[in-house]
């Protein structure tokens, strides 16, 4: 009997001793660039937040957003990793996992403009890769663009259309001028 226990000990030791690290990819995915596209009829305006060397190092370059007052724009947002060559477009990954992501636009002051979502995930919650921005009267302030990552907690989906769950994958303030 005792011998059997011993054999069991030894065997179990060998079985568990192989470290399985195949499934892990030691790769840091990085958003370096946020691209905003505002379309009104034939007019297309693009603004970027760019930090190609990632956190720290060179300071990011941020475009100032200039839009016309009391005008409706169709807005699309894309996320890129430009630290790699060629640059990688992470927008597809966000849209593939749209039920875990939420883009939020916040104008400050809020009179600068109103954002409405025009896309939905599988659960009917907004995603924010596409939407409309209706500007108000002339003024200036900031436009905050956040990409909230809201992955399931203990296998349970947490995205509810609100900002609270999860954490920021991106959080950027653009200066905005409404003329």
């Amino acid at each position: 009997m005792k011998k059997n226990i011993l054999v069991l000990f030894v065997l179990s030791g060998f079985i568990f001793s192989c470290k399985d690290d195949v499934e892990l990819e030691n790769e840091n995915e990085l958003i370096t660039t946020i691209k905003l596209q505002f379309v009104n009829g034939s007019e297309t305006k693009t603004f970027q937040f760019k930090d190609p060397d990632g956190d720290g190092g060179q300071s990011p370059v941020i475009d100032n957003i200039t839009l016309k007052a009391n005008t409706g724009y169709q807005v699309s947002v894309s996320f890129l990793d430009e630290s790699k060559t060629p640059a990688e477009d992470l927008t597809t990954e966000v849209s593939e996992e749209s039920d875990e992501h939420l883009v939020i636009f916040t104008s400050n002051p809020s009179s600068l403009g109103v954002y409405t979502y025009s896309d939905k995930d599988v659960n009917g919650f907004p995603v924010g890769l596409k939407g409309n921005y209706k500007t108000g009267n002339a003024g200036s302030g900031s436009l905050k663009v956040q990409l909230r990552h809201q992955p399931p907690v203990n296998n349970k989906a947490v995205k509810d259309g609100s900002v609270s769950p999860g954490s920021d994958d991106a959080n950027v303030d653009f200066k905005i001028n409404i003329n």
């Binding site: 990819e25 790769e27 995915e29 992470l90 996992e97």
Partner: peptide, 10 residues
């Protein structure tokens, strides 16, 4: 917990 279907890790 990062984006995409990849388990990214340090």
């Amino acid at each position: 917990a990062l984006r995409g279907d990849k388990s990214t890790a340090q």
